[in-house]
Write a protein that binds this DNA or RNA. Sequence first.
RNA 1: GGCGGCUUAGCCAAGUGGUAAGGCGGAGGUCUGCAAAACCUCUAUUCUCCGGUUCGAAUCCGGAAGCCGCCUCCA
Length: 466
Amino acid sequence: MSLRFYNTMTRSLEEFKPIKPGEVRMYTCGPTVYAPAHVGNYRAYTFEDILRRYLIYKGYRVTQVMNITDIDDKTIRDSSAKGITLKEHTQPLIDMFFEDIDRLNIQRAEYYPAATEHIDEMVAMVKKLLERGHAYRSGDSIYYKISTFPKYGSLSHMKIEELMAGARIDSDEYEKETASDFALWKGWTEKDGAVFWETSLGKGRPGWHIECSAMSKKYLGEQFDIHTGGVDNIFPHHENEIAQSEGAAGKKFVNYWLHNAHLIVESKKMAKSEGNFFTVQDLVDQGHDPLAIRFVLLSTHYRQQLNFTMDGLEAAKAAITRLRDFKSNVESATGSGENKAVNEAIEKAVKGFEEGLDNDLNISPSIAAVFDFVREINSIVADKGLSDSDREEVLKILRKFDSVLGVIFVEESEIEADIEEMIQKRLEARKNKDFQTADKIRDELLSRGIILEDTPSGTKWKRKIS
RNA sequence: GGCGGCUUAGCCAAGUGGUAAGGCGGAGGUCUGCAAAACCUCUAUUCUCCGGUUCGAAUCCGGAAGCCGCCUCCA
């Protein structure tokens, strides 16, 4: 079966066909760096990571762009409230963002363009929109005239008349001809303080939506394959992007629109007032392994609302532990002779894994296929062991699954010298049948996060996933 | 008010017409000095509720209840 995605534009499952065979260009909506990103934000980035990784798994060459929105009402508001420059406010948050995606094992995109570094591109696009009659100047600001773009509303499936009927009129945007028009360029006001650019459009700053149109064009061209974001972005952000990009280029902007659902926490909407609003850092501070967070975020289909719970986080730890123990069991397995059952298990697992993800990244059946595989191979290992070549085949395929999941093969930090000593001491004690001492050492190590396992081939240690 | 989504075991979560995947948790067993890991067995006669269509429905249709979104800068 081929790869299919649910396209928000058509509200249907469509076979994925890239514009250029073997290559995928995609734009993934990134963070607005006004406050630390919360776990809900990372649901989106994790989904985008699974998408990216699976495309690579399928053999595509991927060019991914993720924008960094470092200029908007909130970054201005918060930086001026603190009396620091925009950059001083956003840079620490950008650093935190990269720290978080690294520890969640989210692969880096090819480009992370910051809005403030692409003002020229935005100005050029606004000019183009003025030229083509899609925009008008009002006072010091420039607005997009949505009545010039008949397709407006096609992504969100909303009718312009309805939007107009329900539109609220923002007091400081009274100059718009129609309430539902949106700002491309905002003329400087006192509220903006030192945040402005002197451009051929005048003194001011860009509207929010124009950055994505301008930056996607710069890095991906006027037309590309996939655009993603949270469901909240469908309207107005992505709708406006389409209007801008297609209005400026005169051709279709994006072929596949993918949107992820939000997450709730302990069955409740995540909100500061509920006390269930937290960041990745908060969870790490509580001692939770970031990859357990990753597993929680990736294990629910992206279009399904995800219920983030502490029980779920604990379950994820246990699941990852099982997968890593499996890896370790296989690595130390010995045996002779090819085993037909191994190949059968591999074939079945690959089929199940790909069937799930091919179907709009439906990851649950894929994870099920991996766990079925674990049980089958473990059973073979317990029964007959694995030959060298079978072992390598199993590890190869596990590594391939993990190229998407990203939770099994991780760098293990070296064991500390004193821990090694304690393990040796315990070995001695066991030899002398001094099990009391041996158990005491084992307990001590456990309290330091080291789990010992006595196997026929010696004592193994591993780090506990917290 | 308009538009959309969801409701499956103690928890998480697949399944979209043919008789309930998988994970976690729990129970019992094998192995082990004891553990751990691993393996084996068991853990929803039933899919929010009420009707209907059908030989057959968690899946389709109608209705009800609950939850969650979007409706101009929130992933």
